[in-house]
Nucleic acid binder design. Structure first.
Lengths: 186, 205
DNA sequence: GCTTTAAAAAGTAATAT
DNA sequence: ATATTACTTTATAAAGC
């Protein structure tokens, strides 16, 4: 039996870290090939890694945000590449700065089509935002785990706001149970 | 003590001016889209609640007025699309939608999704279509919605496709362009929804 | 609030062929 | 008439306006 939880795929991991060191982003922008820095638009310098594919926002304070990675391991790999580049430029970076996962975006397939109109009523209008004129997904804010789930008519879902891989699994199991209890699992 | 009092008066005055301007804006837009007095009354009640709960801070009065009018139309069962509302507002569609969702969530308006059938009479009369076509369009909407075809789809596009299909079935054909214009959707959207609806109704093409 | 970055879902829209 | 591209929504950190 393929449980919906087994269909979960991590799509994006956002994490933050910092090298306890101030940076000269102007200098970094010229010394780091491929770096994008437009201080008029945004205070962070953008640097992309190819393998694993990810994008890092590097700030003057030395704090770094890594986005786009497909797993927590990829976050660490991408950041290690960046730490290496900085060391190559003579910037002191400690061996393994603390990395905090801030958000994990996952997708999954419940395996049944969904009647979103019925679901909006069933899940409770107060916890649901369903405005198909503006967006085709039903937005459901779950309390435990504290995540936001986007439900689509196809039965595909997106889970975001969680900080651990288990949050997504727990959320999928809970939403499937709730929909099933409502008798709305197509 | 005196300062607190003055501040209270200042806040009250600001609130009154805020409310007065908002109500006149709601009135102006309500007239422009031609909705009954009951909608303006519902809108003013929602606006006062938003003001009391301090939801206006950081948002334009115009934006909140428009969003509240949009909500009031829906609550009264005579919905206007965001596109139609945006036409008489100086706030853009995206901002109206955002503000509406915010106000709706914060005030717990518990709005039900818009029923596409609500658009049938107005769109049909603009197209000068008969009662027979309207009844057929509503039938198509009910039948296909029950089969789950409505999930995630825009109510205006769904209604437009049903009206187009019904006009064909009742020999009062309107072109996709004509229907698209009154519903303010594209011909592509009508085409896509129409195909699904016809198939679900079991009507051979 | 906004600015930027990434990714999925599915609908709609604008533009190209 | 169809194909492509782009935008809508969710969350999240970062520094500054």
């Amino acid at each position: 039996m393929s449980a919906p939880a087994d269909s979960i795929e991590i799509q994006n991991v956002v994490a933050s870290t910092g090298i306890g060191q101030e940076l000269d982003l102007e200098a970094l922008a010229t010394d780091l090939p491929g770096a994008d820095f437009n201080p008029d638009n945004f205070p962070g310098l953008v640097y992309r890694t190819q393998e694993p594919k990810a994008a890092a926002l590097i700030f003057r304070s030395g704090k770094i945000v890594c986005t786009g990675a497909k797993s927590i391991d990829d976050v660490h790999e991408a950041l290690d590449i960046i730490f290496g580049k900085l060391r190559d430029l003579g910037i002191p970076v400690e061996d393994s700065p603390e990395v905090t996962v801030q958000n994990i975006v996952s997708s999954a397939d419940l395996g049944h089509s969904l009647n979103l109109n019925a679901l909006a009523i069933g899940l409770g209008l107060e916890d649901v935002e369903y405005e198909p004129e503006q967006f085709p997904g039903l937005v459901y804010r779950m309390d435990n785990p504290e995540v936001v789930i986007l439900l689509f008519g196809s039965g595909k879902v997106v889970i975001t706001g969680g900080k651990t891989v288990d949050d997504a699994s727990a959320a999928v199991e809970r939403i499937v149970d709730r929909i099933d209890d409502l008798g709305l699992l197509g | 003590r005196l300062r607190k009092w003055q501040e209270r008066i200042r806040t009250k005055d600001a609130g009154e001016r805020n409310l007065q301007f908002a109500l006149s804006e709601i009135d102006r837009m309500a007239s422009a889209i031609g909705v009954p007095r009951s909608v303006r009354e519902v809108a003013s009640v929602i606006y006062r609640r938003a003001l009391n709960e301090d939801l206006i801070r950081g948002r334009s009065i115009e934006g909140v007025s428009t969003a509240v009018l949009y909500a009031a139309c829906r609550k009264e069962g005579i919905p206007r699309s965001l596109e139609e509302i945006a036409e008489v507002s100086r706030v853009e569609r995206k901002e109206i939608g955002r503000t509406y969702r915010y106000i709706s969530q914060e005030l717990g308006l518990e709005m039900r999704p818009v029923d596409p059938k609500k658009y049938v009479p107005r769109f049909s009369s603009q197209l000068e279509l008969s009662e027979e076509v309207q009844a057929k369009a509503k039938e198509i909407i009910d039948t296909t919605a029950e089969q789950g075809l409505l999930s995630g789809k825009s109510p205006t596009g769904f209604a437009a496709a049903a009206i187009y299909a019904a006009s064909l079935l009742c020999n009062e054909k309107k072109t996709q362009r004509e229907v698209a214009d009154v519903a303010q959707v594209t011909e592509v959207t009508i085409r896509n929804r129409y195909q699904e609806q016809i198939e679900a109704m079991g009507i051979p093409t």
